[in-house]
Write a protein that binds this DNA or RNA. Sequence first.
DNA 1: GAGGTCATTGTGAGCGCTAACAATTCATGG
DNA 2: CCATGAATTGTTAGCGCTCACAATGACCTC
Lengths: 362, 362
Amino acid sequence: MTHTQLRPPTMADVARLAGVSHQTVSRVLGDHPNVREQTRVRVLRAIEEMGYRRNSSARALVTRRTRTLGVVASDTTLYGPASTLFALEEAARAEGYLALERQSAQTVRRRSLFGRPSLRRLTVEELSEALDHLGEGGVEGVVAIAPQRSAVEALAELRHPFPVVVVGSGPGVDIPSVSVDQQLGGRLATAHLLAAGHRTVWHLAGPEDWQEAADRAAGWRSTLEAEGVEPPMLLRGDWSPLSGYRAGQELAGWVGRGLTAVFVANDQMALGVLRALREAGVRTPQDVAVVGFDDIPESEFFAPPLTTVRQDFEAVGKQGIALLLDLIEGRPPAASRIAIEPQLVVRASTFPYTAQAERVPL
Amino acid sequence: MTHTQLRPPTMADVARLAGVSHQTVSRVLGDHPNVREQTRVRVLRAIEEMGYRRNSSARALVTRRTRTLGVVASDTTLYGPASTLFALEEAARAEGYLALERQSAQTVRRRSLFGRPSLRRLTVEELSEALDHLGEGGVEGVVAIAPQRSAVEALAELRHPFPVVVVGSGPGVDIPSVSVDQQLGGRLATAHLLAAGHRTVWHLAGPEDWQEAADRAAGWRSTLEAEGVEPPMLLRGDWSPLSGYRAGQELAGWVGRGLTAVFVANDQMALGVLRALREAGVRTPQDVAVVGFDDIPESEFFAPPLTTVRQDFEAVGKQGIALLLDLIEGRPPAASRIAIEPQLVVRASTFPYTAQAERVPL
DNA sequence: GAGGTCATTGTGAGCGCTAACAATTCATGG
DNA sequence: CCATGAATTGTTAGCGCTCACAATGACCTC
């Protein structure tokens, strides 16, 4: 047992031991300039000797600053939200803040009967309760990792005594936000496939309610339309490998009937698609090229290694915290809608960009 | 903008509006029994009207309770630590606590040159700083997700004014801990392969410093030795798919020379092994059976689907928080070394248990 | 040597809340 | 009708800290 149950020493105790007033101790701790070196050393020694630490509650009470930020997240078992969360904590720490985490959905069972937790919509009540909870924890502001449109809308309705920034959801309701430019990602993926010679590109999208899913699909659609190509039927999954597998089985049925390339809205579903195609005797990329989204650490080792779109979560975290701090400090924020550029990572699941430069437009 | 910059109302403000004393307001908020219903309603209405929230710092100052727990983690991009973190937050919330998160390693770049962040050892200084930081955030206790032996040792040395519980590291230094029984996991995996008819089982272990890696290897070794089998050369990786890929290339060279089964210490490395074997023309499971560890959501969709060992992180989180709270409240903990049982999940990367029941002992 | 300036230290108040105790009200029974 | 005790409400004193201001003393300047 390396901790004691005794009441911890106070500033006054330290002051007494050092033979100064409590205010001088406070000054030393606050790096106040006008303290004689000799006094400073004496105080520091006393602090060391007693193992003194300032009481954060007392400080927060008088300064009205807790130096704590809240993070609300829903399904943090997904790669994107999880990566964002860690980037946020890191950025907050760099700014001298602590991160209070709070998942807003109730127990997310690790996997349902067949491989994946079911995605839950965030209700207004859940979000409201989460914000209240964080508020009672004394946060000065909150970053919400809210990729679902419904969540952002709920956030816009809610009243709270601190600023809130949304990350992970693109333009939508009028809330300060930071996100990766998902439409651009969709365009990059689709254009890559078209440039490799494919006449058209199919798309397996994410859940309807997710802003990111909608944006990726919009990027896909606009790229096709700009080339005068009628977008084929859109498939939907729930981000899970299993849903990708099922969609892949369906896609396999279209091979030979115009399907040669698929843009899948995330890497996990792409994994399922790859497996379904393989089981159906369809080769990747010879018969069907596949592009994913996210660039999870595993995708480089899929069979075959997956071409995908990488998102810079670190940048999202940094910008999100920067924006939130601007709001907290009352500074005019540099921008209240920040978009980060994604990046295409080409691997073996598509033909290299240069291999079939000849493209046949319709 | 849904927040105001005005000074928030205090209990006294509410009391004035409701025509009672601030203490009565406090009583209402604290669900104190002896408050007349009529008064209660009046106070509640005033609270509602002013949008009043209790000041957590003031409460914490006088009650000496912050209802906040800290979590230190190092590499939270790995599946295990990440899952544990979320389980901890959930369990803490269920007990009415908030979770203050703090990563102890500095910036973990998402991926180094070739696919993975490098694993960092936690130094005593880093851990010490992390605990200090959390301490200044007012935590009542800390859960450390510390799978590295060096981290646990550092923790044992450190002096801190609150209880600390370690999760994810098995028995070792004398610190209260909760973890999955990794040795049992190693035994399950190895016994499964032996029972399927393999003469021996190779092992690709995790990094040397990781307690989990050591325990899994120990379970593997003891199972072989109990059967009178001399354990083959042990390979090491760093948990990443890339390191698995490299080890897989080496393993492929041993096929035909007694290698028919491999137990890989985590699923990500197993993914790399599978790819290397495939590229070398080695079939799984016909030529070489592979077992992983962790049961990440993707492993069901690997090529082939991976037999692996599932860990119950939710249980780890619950037990970890329960143990920490016992310590905080000064209750005698039920047990200060808790082990959770892992579970074998059989898939196509090994022959089903029943397929080759005939086992030929040496 | 009086007056001024600066560096250094101390004093007092009060942040918003809860806990302990004091005061008031109300119903009841003798 | 008044004592008696329970129910209800109010009063007071800090929790440990920072802020504003006051006090002290050393050192100049003319």
